[in-house]
Amino acid sequence: MTTFQSPQNNGTSGSKDNDGFGQRVDQIGVDAQQLWTDARSAVTGLSETLDIRGRVDRNPYGMVLAAVGVGYVLGGGLFTPLTGRILKLGVRLAALPFVKDELLGMAEAALQGFQTGQANVNGQNPSAGIGAAPRTSGPGTIS
């Protein structure tokens, strides 16, 4: 069995190593304090930029909803079936105005076509529209 023996020294080199180690520990402490100060100033700067307290004072319910949304996402709720259903509903609700406009346009075109057909049956000028007086003279009119 082999045993490790430390080299013999007169105490000068060991003291020197301990001084270097102490300086390194002191430097690590200074660096940690600097890191803590920088992190605290970054958080303070971010909170001033976001103005969270002012936003809560101006719109407390909106901020509660925002906090619930952030908690839902951070809690892992983003990839759940509930989120899929909510997104489907959101897309449908977002598309509703476009569908409504298209349906109204189609209904107007159908109504205009119906009115034009009625005008042709009654002998009215189709370009004159509903309520126009029938032509009394000219080619193709009934006298």
Rank of each mutant, 00 (worst) to 15 (best):
Val73Arg: 04
Pro134Cys: 09
Met106Val: 11
Ala128Met: 05
Gln124Tyr: 14
Gly22Lys: 13
Leu65Ile: 06
Gln124His: 15
Val30Met: 09
Pro139Gly: 15
Asn122Trp: 11
Ala119Ile: 14
Gly129Trp: 03
Gly90Arg: 01
Gly131Gln: 03
Gly69Arg: 07
Val64Phe: 09
Asn125Thr: 12
Leu104Gly: 02
Ser143His: 08
Ala107Gln: 14
Gln5Val: 06
Ile142Leu: 13
Arg53Thr: 15
Ser137Ile: 14
Arg40Gly: 10
Pro134Glu: 04
Ala42Pro: 01
Gln23Phe: 05
Thr44Tyr: 08
Arg53Val: 15
Ser13Met: 03
Thr44Trp: 07
Asn125Arg: 07
Asp19Val: 10
Ala107Met: 07
Glu108Asn: 11
Ser13Cys: 01
Ser137His: 10
Pro139Glu: 14
Ser15Cys: 04
Thr12Tyr: 04
Tyr61Pro: 01
Phe79Trp: 14
Pro81Val: 02
Gly20Asp: 13
Ile142Ala: 13
Leu87Pro: 00
Ala66Ser: 11
Met106Ile: 10
Lys16Ala: 09
Pro7Asp: 10
Asn120His: 08
Gly77Tyr: 10
Ala133Val: 02
Gly131Val: 03
Thr83Met: 09
Thr3Arg: 01
Ala107Trp: 03
Pro97Asp: 07
Gly29Val: 00
Leu35Ile: 10
Val64Thr: 08
Ile142Gly: 05
Asn122Leu: 15
Gln8Ser: 06
Asn10Ala: 11
Tyr72Thr: 07
Gly22Leu: 12
Gly75Asn: 03
Val70Gly: 08
Asp51Tyr: 05
Lys16Gly: 09
Lys88Val: 14
Asp51Ser: 14
Thr83Arg: 07
Leu82Met: 08
Leu50Met: 07
Pro60Asn: 04
Met1Ser: 04
Asn59Ser: 15
Thr83Lys: 04
Gly90Thr: 12
Gly71Leu: 02
Ala133Cys: 02
Trp36Ala: 13
Gln8His: 11
Gly131Lys: 03
Met63Ser: 02
Trp36Ile: 10
Leu82Tyr: 11
Thr80Pro: 01
Gly90Glu: 08
Lys100Val: 08
Gly76Cys: 02
Thr49Trp: 12
Asn9Asp: 10
